[in-house]
Nucleic acid binder design. Structure first.
Length: 445
RNA sequence: CGGGCUAUAGCGCAGUCUGGUAGCGCGUUCGUCUGGGGGACGAGAGGUCGCAGGUUCGAACCCUGCUAGCCCGACCA
């Protein structure tokens, strides 16, 4: 993409009503614009990152054997009356009525709808286990939206639902989700720690939240620092293996890690003091096992291998995709702007032309831009007639992990400059070598 | 939902107390110079002062009502 032809309205000044880094930076980098309290338009750059996160979530869900679908944002109140949550959910649920006066609502989650679909179409244990999910906009009418997309009213979320014939199978689904979530966050370049949590309005017997550590997090978290050293890496995971999923889940849930909601000071005190970690965290996902809560309420049954009808065991799982975007920025930025992990960056590399209008420099940039595009590096070429300082500042603000600087001085020696956003380190090398190096970095992400 | 605050150009703000021609910085447009960290100079464009009503010869400013947004707290993916 040529910056001169793109739509990325950046700002030098901080907007007055954005308080935290991710909110400020997303607005300044031209990623979002507020349309109403807690409701945002996603400008091209923000949308691009959102789609990348969404794709990673999809890929990891499918890898774990889960089946994508799409449910509507608007739901009928009837199903929610059946589960009893129409009254329980309170004012957080946006209630509306259609022209016939029928009670509708903008879905804050989808347990009722998916259970309805399931019970109408699945009757036998032979169709189980089954996990369905979708990634869709949700609306929760928060009393006090804030922090940009981190705590918006409208948000983009992956929510999935597993259906199993018995508890053991459902617990495997729980473990399988934990593993697939760990992998999802790792692929995004983030560390999100599973922590024992409260079940809240979803209800249930077991639940873990996933938290990204960041100073601006809304929860106080306590953990054994040993958990920070755990990595899934590229280990081969068989998502059908109950043992392997349980083993990985055990690995991550054995070190102490809890939010203030479930914190147990006595247990925490037993950890060697040098390993006691305490900080703030941003919740970016949660998994639940809630047994037959919804299947009982909504009469979702299957016939088991004994020929008897039994209520299905269920769980639900969510990843806040739009919130994740904010969380990544919170965890990865500096005073100059965002620092994107390679896996989710809006563009793979920024090309800065230091002397726009100079024949040689322009030609070198054009050639570089073309090669980078062919290599799939998705470059952003700053071809504006701006001075060097402005171009550097823009690149740093929007946070591309790599920058290639092309100027007459380097070209005289046949080199360009490759700069890492994270470390700030630069090296001079030929354009070919720079691209080769980047291609290697982006390979296999 | 309790407490506090704000609304003036795309963004950040002054002007309101004490009513009398709508301002500043950044951005933006054009020109000249400049050219490796948001450069300089010159010339422009851009505002129903959140909305409605009232007081007044006259309201961004005073009064009343409304709306929107933000902050702290309690609550939440």
């Amino acid at each position: 993409m040529r910056l001169s032809k793109y739509f990325m309205p950046t700002m030098k000044d901080n907007p007055s009503d954005a308080q935290i880094a991710s909110h400020r930076l997303m607005i300044r980098a031209g990623m979002i614009r507020q349309s109403a309290s807690g409701i945002y338009s996603w400008l091209p750059t923000g949308f691009k990152v959102l789609r990348k996160l969404e794709n990673i979530v999809h890929e990891e869900q499918v890898r774990a054997g889960h089946i994508p679908m799409l449910m509507p944002t608007l739901q009928s109140a009837d199903l929610w009356r059946e589960s009893g949550r129409y009254d329980d959910y309170g004012k957080e649920m946006l209630r509306i009525s259609d022209r016939h006066g029928r009670d509708m609502l903008y879905g804050p989650t989808n347990e009722e709808l998916i259970t309805d679909i399931f019970r109408d179409n699945v009757q036998s244990y032979k169709d189980l286990p089954m996990t369905l999910y979708h990634i869709q906009w949700k609306f929760r009418d928060e009393v006090r939206p804030r922090f940009g997309v981190m705590r918006g009213r409208e948000f983009f979320m992956k929510d999935g639902y597993n259906f199993d014939v018995d508890k053991d199978s459902a617990l495997h689904a729980y473990n399988r989700h934990m593993v697939s979530y760990l992998r999802t966050y790792e692929r995004m370049g983030m560390k999100a720690l599973p922590m024992r949590a409260d079940s809240g309005p979803i209800g249930g017997e077991d639940t873990h939240e996933f938290l990204v550590l960041a100073d601006t997090g809304e929860s106080e978290v306590f953990y054994d620092k040993a958990i920070l050293d755990l990595h899934l890496g590229d280990r081969a995971v068989d998502y059908d293996s109950w043992d392997q999923c349980a083993e990985i889940a055990r690995e991550w849930t054995t070190p102490y890690a809890r939010t203030d909601e479930t914190h147990d000071p006595e247990l925490f005190a037993q950890i060697p003091s040098e390993r006691q970690g305490q900080s703030r965290g941003i919740e970016v996902g949660q998994i639940f096992y809630f047994g037959t809560k919804y299947s009982d309420a909504m009469n979702a049954k299957v016939v088991n291998d004994q020929g008897r009808e039994v209520p299905v065991h269920m769980g639900s799982h969510g990843i806040g995709v739009s919130r994740m975007l904010g969380a990544i920025i919170e965890a990865s930025h500096d005073e100059n702007g965002i620092i994107w992990p390679e896996a989710v960056t809006p563009f793979g590399v920024g090309i800065v032309n230091l002397k726009q209008g100079d024949d040689d420099t322009d030609a070198a940039c054009e050639a570089l831009y073309k090669s980078a595009t062919l290599l799939g590096l998705d470059p952003l070429y700053d071809d504006r007639k701006e001075r060097a300082g402005a171009k550097f500042s823009t690149m740093e603000l929007i946070g591309l992990p790599w920058r290639i600087t092309v100027g007459p001085r380097g070209l005289k020696n046949g080199v360009v400059e490759l700069t890492c956003r994270k470390t700030g380190e630069s090296e001079e090398l030929t354009a070919e070598l720079a691209l080769e190096k980047l291609a290697k970095i982006y390979q296999g992400l």
